[in-house]
Design a protein around this nucleic acid. Structure first.
Length: 283
DNA sequence: CAGCAGGTGCAAG
DNA sequence: CTTGCACCTGCT
């Protein structure tokens, strides 16, 4: 175990972790981050274009973190493909170091089920509550015990009331439904990788509490379907404000975005989302 | 205290 | 098929 240093362009650790796509990270006083993913706690920091992965190995870096942070992809090329669009150019210039994290499918699904009608700190709190109650202990931070996000098997005995008590509120039955579907084999999480985007989305939409937006988030943030364009309230606002100039139905925004951004739409979504949320565009 | 937040299900038109 | 509203919870 040692520190592994990677030099990289077009990547900003803070922007990538805090752009709203993932929830299990902590910023430390010294600017380091702790990230919980893949059953591990990663301590990581950025110094200019160097990323320092602490207490890890070259092997773990290659097996886990390079994929998690999407470090093999050419973001320079992706960004330049958008830059003739002046809105995109502005959004990219604002947070040029965002990358799309590749999360574990199960955790991503439950995280975005929880996200509905909630702000990020609340989402993080509920995920933490569920992890502490059902996940595995994986270490300490500042006197606090850290836990993995529980597997469907670990959630097997949880009742709706149990989950409700962890502050999940009306989302509790949705989480129970997702767990049940995975445990019975009705939903094959691993199998989603093999399906087309359209087929995988259809599977995800079977789950109670999963609609268009959450299904798209799972497709983009855990299944690597970079052509999907999740539309939440901020993306709706930013699209209406800069492009459509009037109140527009989600379906129509979807069509417009697909037309405009093509198979890279997911990346465009993330730059636009972050820009809109930070600048409170259209609010 | 009422209103609202990174949506969705459900009942009514 | 489209629209409007309730929904846990916690913060303003």
């Amino acid at each position: 175990m040692t520190t592994f240093i990677k030099e990289i362009e077009d990547f900003d650790l803070e922007q990538t972790l805090e752009c709203g796509q993932c929830f299990r990270y902590m910023k430390l006083d010294d600017g380091h981050y702790k990230v919980i993913a893949h059953g591990k706690v990663l301590e990581v920091m950025q110094k200019n274009n160097e990323i320092h992965f602490h207490h890890t190995t070259l092997e773990e870096y290659h097996d886990t973190w390079v994929h998690y942070f999407d470090l093999d992809r050419d973001y320079r090329g992706i960004k330049s493909s958008f830059e003739e669009d002046l809105v995109m150019k502005e959004a990219i210039a604002y947070k040029p170091g965002v990358r799309i994290i590749k999360q574990e499918v199960w955790e991503c699904l439950i995280s975005f089920i929880i996200s509905q009608n909630k702000a990020i700190p609340h989402i993080q709190k509920i995920i933490k509550n569920i992890s502490e109650a059902y996940g595995d202990y994986i270490g300490d931070h500042d006197g606090e015990k850290l836990y993995t996000f529980p597997t469907p098997e670990q959630l097997r005995e949880a009742t709706e009331q149990d989950i409700r008590d962890l502050k999940a509120g009306f989302r509790a039955p949705y989480i129970i439904d997702a767990t049940r579907r995975v445990l019975t084999g009705e939903l094959d999480l691993h199998g989603l990788q093999e399906l087309t985007t359209e087929e995988a989305k259809k599977e995800l939409l079977q789950i109670k509490g999963v609609g268009n937006k959450i299904a798209d988030c799972v497709l983009l943030f855990s299944l690597g379907r970079h052509e999907v364009f999740p539309i939440d309230i901020w993306v709706k606002r930013v699209m209406e404000y800069f492009y459509l100039k009037e109140d527009t139905k989600l379906d129509a925004i979807q069509v417009y975005a697909k037309e405009k951004f093509g198979r890279q739409a997911g990346f465009a979504q993330q730059y636009l989302f972050y820009y809109a949320r930070e600048k409170k565009i259209g609010k």
